[in-house]
Design a protein around this nucleic acid. Structure first.
Lengths: 213, 213
DNA sequence: GTCTATATAATGATAGAC
DNA sequence: GTCTATCATTATATAGAC
């Protein structure tokens, strides 16, 4: 591929241009706040032309969702296996996942909105399937680490996976807010953020807890 | 107070009933997906009556936001000081905060949507101020823990605070998704979830890291 | 495939009676 | 304070020319 599919560059007319324009707007404002006219305008085309390519607003949205999920899973597949200890593989996977969601920010926002929004019913299942995929891999890795004795065995592996996902997701999600918060100093560099967070979590997963039973 | 202010119980007509109905709908579907007619219907009143009480849709939304923030900060104030070690106080604060957001789920969803959504501009500042408040307290506690030698000093305290907030927020946010995921087993009990998570984080904050420098 | 023009329905908001 | 009736605007979606 010679041009990244997730950044501005709205090439006039055509199905591609419509999809890109729509993705940008939907990601920023959400489904209901975006009108077909606005999409047509940004895509440098007309409303009826959008209806020529897509049956209705819902189907256009669905097409974008599917493309976003496809792209995201493809990139996850590339991260599938890395060498080293389980701890190292987990750290690499986590770092790669954070990198991906930051690179494809619009796709990510779209998917997260659908997955975690109210009962919108729109593309929730497809978004959930995506989240579950990331999650399953992390759970499996943690379990491996436990059976190999790298991590303490008394922790629910899905909880450990959840901690990794949640810090990454929330980092992405809260980035705009945190950036202009004077108390936050780590917000600029995602990879060192991720390194330190996984470091803390893994250390916590090794040391035996001393909280009330 | 004798009836909780955050649960169904839509009492017909009146400013209270309108506010409750609107909060429920806005939290579930978001600003743009909710029509004034829908609010009127749920509040058992008429559209013009809403306009009698509130200047327009935006101001109604704002009134809800402000009430939600007020309620949340009040509850945080009650958690301000608890006895014990810094670690214990932090754990209590974290647990209390998670309890609060789960109890006032509609308010929370509303605030989080505004704080972390795209560039909606609507009530973003007021929501950010709310998030910052929780955050500042956690940062201060972590710093205290560091200066008392309870936690290792080489970790950015805001990063530690961020981890606590993110796991709590993301727990709340992803609850509906995680609940019907067979791999998740911890989703039912928020307080034990919180206890284990803070346990892991604190252990990680004590143990010296062994990742690449 | 792409447009102009338009149908149809729903939206936010108001006038004015009671 | 609350309603019925209605306004102006904008939305999704389509018909039909080129």
């Amino acid at each position: 591929m010679q041009n990244h599919q997730d950044k501005p560059l709205i090439n006039a007319g055509g199905e591609q241009g419509i999809l890109q324009a729509a993705e940008a707007l939907f990601a920023e404002k959400g489904f209901d706040a975006v009108s077909m006219s606005a999409i047509a305008k940004l895509a440098n085309t007309s409303k009826p032309n959008i209806y020529h390519h897509f049956k209705n607003k819902n189907e256009l949205y669905f097409a974008i969702m599917e493309a976003a999920v496809q792209r995201a899973t493809d990139l996850l597949d590339a991260l599938e296996d890395s060498p080293g200890t389980i701890r190292q593989r987990l750290a690499d996977f986590s770092a790669g996942q954070l990198e991906n969601i930051l690179l494809h920010d619009r796709s990510t926002q779209l998917i997260m909105r659908e997955a975690f929004s109210g009962t919108s019913e729109r593309g929730r299942d497809i978004a959930k399937q995506m989240v579950s995929k990331v999650f399953s891999r992390l759970v499996a890795m943690v379990q491996q680490g436990q059976s190999k004795g790298e991590f303490r065995a008394d922790i629910d592996p899905s909880l450990a996976a959840f901690m990794i996902v949640s810090t990454n997701m929330f980092y992405f999600q809260s980035k705009p807010v945190m950036e202009d918060n004077p108390e936050i100093t780590f917000s600029g560099d995602a990879s060192t953020f991720n390194r330190i967070v996984t470091d803390i979590i893994f250390n916590g997963l090794i040391t035996q807890g001393n909280s009330a039973p």
